[in-house]
């Protein structure tokens, strides 16, 4: 394995896919965020926490510009970091993944990690726009979210080991993973925050957020697959002298 090339193509594919994610968010998620933050503003005016003055709106548009600009930078950082994890897993799993080309293998792994690390946790703890989260419960919500992802991720790894050791009836491994996640669904507490925002806003936000994250996993799979196929960092040339 050529270590530097291996690291570079993994970081490059993650970063590029993260920027794609940021662009998708700017196009389809931002309108929902603007609407949700608009509701927050109305609540602040009603409660007297803020006043509807020109000065307020100058500051509002200034920090919203900062937040929107951050979509691309945060997308690049998050994409690079999730891509790093994806690359580690691909490094170990590439010879056992199905597919007759690296592009098919990277896409299969991206699909598996999308389901295990995002889709299943999303079903239990779906994304929420601003106006929903209570600052008092942030530590609890972060803990629950990370714990659920960890159960799903390590559960998938554990049941893959079971899958490898089974000579027949390999379906048992899938049933075992489904059972584990079913228990986690049933036993772990719900998001404690009440939803007071309109449900069309919440559901619309969740749908576009799902599209955005899915665009990341599709992109990272495609980009890493193309780069790996072209550059093959695991191929090392050795000279033999006889």
């Amino acid at each position: 394995m050529r270590t530097s090339l291996f690291i570079v193509i993994i970081l490059l594919s993650g970063c590029s896919a993260g920027i794609v994610h940021g662009l998708v968010n700017l196009a389809i998620v931002e309108p929902y965020l603007d609407r949700a933050i608009g509701i927050e503003n109305q609540h602040m005016f009603a409660s007297g926490e803020a006043k509807d003055t020109p000065q307020f709106w100058v500051e509002y548009y200034s920090y919203r510009a900062w937040q929107k600009g951050g979509q691309l930078l945060a997308g690049a950082i998050l994409g690079t970091s999730i891509g790093a994890l994806y690359g580690i897993v691909f490094g170990y799993a590439r010879n056992i993944l199905p597919g007759n080309s690296f592009i098919k293998k990277t896409l299969v792994l991206a699909a598996i990690m999308w389901v295990v690390l995002y889709l299943i946790p999303f079903a239990k703890y779906p994304s929420n726009p601003p106006t929903v989260g209570d600052p008092e419960t942030i530590i609890l919500r972060q803990t629950l979210y990370v714990l659920f992802i960890a159960i799903s991720g390590f559960g998938a790894l554990g049941f893959y080991q079971v899958y490898k050791r089974l000579k027949s009836r390999k379906m048992i491994a899938f049933i075992g993973y489904a059972g584990l996640m079913g228990m986690a669904f049933a036993l772990m507490p719900q998001n404690p925050d009440a939803i007071t925002a309109p449900m069309d806003l919440i559901n619309g936000f969740r749908a576009v957020s799902l599209v955005g994250v899915s665009s990341f996993w599709l992109s990272v799979g495609l980009i890493l697959g193309v780069l790996w196929q072209k550059l093959q960092p695991d191929k090392v040339k050795q000279s033999k002298f006889q």
Binding site: M1, I77, S81, G87, N95, K235, V236
Partner: peptide
Amino acid sequence: FSKEITLSKSSVPKVALLVLATIFAFGV
């Protein structure tokens, strides 16, 4: 005489593992 062969190494280098795991943790 000399000849060149191409080998496919399946393991992930420890340095790469350390760098990528650090980037993952920090970025997330």
